[in-house]
Design a protein around this nucleic acid. Structure first.
Length: 471
RNA sequence: CGUGGGGUAGAGCAGCCUGGUAGCUCGUUUGGCUCAUAACCCAACGGUCAGUGGUUCAAAUCCACUCCCCACAACCA
């Protein structure tokens, strides 16, 4: 038995949960459940990123204390994760006292690689960030998002010396010690790595109040990087606790938009702390809506809670784990979702369970439990984190059972009194279904449990269909 | 010349690395079955594989160029 650590990106809680957040959780959950199925012990982190000006200002607008505001939003995310039936074991909030204390201790440990420096450039107070010269020229000196002219600003920041670690990070990536999936993202990162400047990891207190103070410097507050990225460690109790059992993580799941921070800044922090790098960084794609990136201005944002409400958690998991590519961008439309529910969940699987259970019941067939082993092809796909392909493979097996029933035609055997052949046929069909069902477990845990329950010794057809048609 | 991905049947995709009858799912049409949620199974229809040129006996697949779409570019997932 191995001890396995799996992480998800912590969302910035200045808004409601997004469909994209669900991808992180679901992929990590499939990974976690699969590992548990193999008999491993899993710690599975989830959490929320709660510092920064945007949150501070939002709370101000709403006229409620910042702490109260982040409490509310953190709960929204917890509820959301629960609704997805994601089995995380540890939840970390960057405003947790323990996290803040540990992050300060981590800062102290990083000190050899931190230096203070001045930065001068164009700044947008709305975006709260410095703008590149190029961007400044393109926008003619006015922020397009905030309609405000950029200001010339000089400030002192602490910097983390990425340059100290570039060579080691490159080696880790190239050698596969820290595997970046998919491989085309790895290529991208290797290119970016060379150009990566040292990263600013603090802000003057005047600019940023809602954050963790830099130890030993009252004028500076930690910017997002050290604070947020280190959640993966602090949640395990680092630095005061020994984390060797679970660190390095087997897999860290992130969206492609934040892969670069996890593939460059994060490894630099880890190396500075003398810790190992995660074994795998899995970067998933974006969920598009009608072929476009979801955006408030286009008005095509899909509310995950609405999708969840439509056909429940299992249908949600089904669609997003099978029809959204694990690594690339994929499209969500309601039509596709309905199609998948009716044709695949209801017709392929739901109906299969119904017909097979009824056949067994009507013929007084008793199934004797047999050992189930997982096919190599499935194991390989799961090991490579190709979850949607693994799910496709499983579905092929489900469809095969439908074919097999038609070929065997048990109803004819029953009519002709060929009892022995009938029992053999039913036994084989149910065995095949249960193998597929076992493979289904990480993806659709509730459904898988229900099916396993139905095909115990005494088989009763379910009174309610597994996936009732809506029309 | 910022970086990366992509352009293959009505839709969504695989195949391309390791050239040799163009495949899968959904949709459409026809047939079969009757155990089942009017579900299931067989079959058919449907593509000049973005374009141009090159290499080759042979190119969706390799090379060059062109056109078009998308994502990322210090946290709007």
């Amino acid at each position: 038995m191995e001890k396995i650590y799996i992480t998800t990106a912590i969302p910035y809680v200045n808004g409601a949960p997004h469909v994209g957040h669900a991808m992180d959780y679901l992929l990590a959950d499939v990974c976690s459940r699969y590992q548990k199925m193999l008999g491993n012990e899993v710690r599975f982190q989830a959490g929320t990123d709660e510092h920064g000006n945007k949150i501070f200002q939002k709370a101000k607008e709403l006229n409620i204390p910042t702490k109260e505001y982040v409490d509310q939003n953190a709960n929204k995310f917890k509820d959301f994760i629960k609704k997805l039936n994601v089995e995380y074991t540890d939840f970390v909030r960057t405003t947790d006292e323990a996290h803040e204390k540990r992050v300060q201790e981590i800062w102290e440990k990083l000190k050899d690689h931190i230096y203070l420096s001045k930065y001068e450039g164009w700044y947008c107070s709305g975006c709260e960030r410095f703008i590149t010269e190029k961007e400044y020229e393109e926008n003619h000196g006015v922020c397009p998002d905030h309609q405000k002219p950029y200001e010339r600003l000089e400030e002192e920041n602490y910097y983390l010396k990425i340059s100290d670690f570039k060579a080691d990070i490159r080696d880790a990536i190239v050698s596969g010690k820290m595997l970046i999936l998919p491989d085309f993202r790895e290529k991208e990162i290797l290119k970016l790595l060379d150009e990566s400047p040292d990263v600013s990891i603090s802000r003057p207190r005047a600019q940023l109040t809602w954050g963790v103070p830099v130890p030993g410097d009252d004028n500076q507050v930690m910017y997002v990087w050290v604070d947020a990225l280190c959640n993966y460690l602090t949640v395990l109790g680092y630095p005061e606790q020994d984390i060797a059992d679970f660190w390095p993580a087997l897999a860290q799941f992130v969206g492609k938009d934040i892969l670069r921070f996890h593939a460059i800044i994060w490894p630099a922090i880890l190396l500075a702390l003398g810790l190992e790098l995660p074994k795998t960084l899995v970067s998933h794609g974006m969920v598009l809506s009608n072929g476009q990136k979801m955006s408030k201005s286009i008005g095509n944002v899909v509310d995950p809670l609405e999708v969840l409400e439509k056909h429940g958690t299992e249908a949600f998991r089904y669609f997003f784990l099978r029809h959204i590519d694990t690594f690339s961008d994929s499209d969500f439309t309601w039509e596709k979702y309905e199609n998948a529910y009716n044709n695949e969940l209801a017709n392929d699987l739901g109906n299969l369970v119904q017909r097979l259970a009824t056949l067994a019941y009507k013929n007084n067939f008793v199934y004797e439990k047999a050992e189930i082993s997982l096919p190599d092809e499935y194991r390989d796909l799961m090991k490579e984190f190709k979850f949607n392909l693994a799910f496709d493979f499983v579905w092929g097996k489900v469809q095969d059972v439908n074919k097999q029933i038609d070929d065997d035609a048990p109803w004819s055997l029953a009519k002709n009194g060929e009892t022995k052949k009938l029992n053999e046929a039913l036994n084989s069909e149910i065995s095949n279904l249960l193998i597929a069902n076992k493979m289904l477990e990480p993806f659709l845990p509730e459904t898988s449990a229900k099916i396993a329950q139905i095909f115990t010794n005494q088989i009763d057809p379910p009174k309610e269909p597994l996936f009732p048609k809506t029309k």
